[in-house]
């Protein structure tokens, strides 16, 4: 069975859905953050695949993926700083503790 474009589509969708499930069922803020990275990578994989499917005529979508990686790196720097700050304040990374807006 040769590999077709729908195989890549299903692979990307699976990775994205696993990321969604991880953000929903875990309580550790760092794991949730890692699942967001997983979702970003699923999207990157699909973009590179579409570029490849287009016959590799230009590298525009690969530039796009590169810029997504840049934004993800910046996001991780700020997000981990926020998590470290949260740990310093409440001595936990459990997201269920952060419910002060609820009350």
């Amino acid at each position: 069975m040769p590999v077709t474009s729908s195989n890549y589509l299903i692979l990307s969708l699976l990775l994205f859905s696993i990321g969604i499930m991880g953000t929903l069922i875990r309580r550790n803020a760092i794991i949730i953050f890692m699942c967001i990275e997983l979702m970003l990578n699923a999207v990157n994989l699909l973009l590179v695949h579409f570029s490849h499917l287009n016959g590799d005529v230009d590298a525009d979508s690969q530039i796009f993926v590169f810029l997504i990686m840049v934004v993800a790196a910046a996001e991780v720097a700020v997000g981990l700083a926020i998590i470290a700050m949260m740990y310093r304040k409440v001595h936990s990374v459990d997201v269920n503790i952060l419910n002060r807006l609820k009350h």
Binding site: L13, L14, M21, L24
Partner: peptide, 13 residues
């Protein structure tokens, strides 16, 4: 969480 993730997968598929 698992149900909503799986539903999202099915919808996208």
């Amino acid at each position: 969480g698992i149900l909503s993730g799986g539903t999202l997968f099915l919808v996208l598929l």
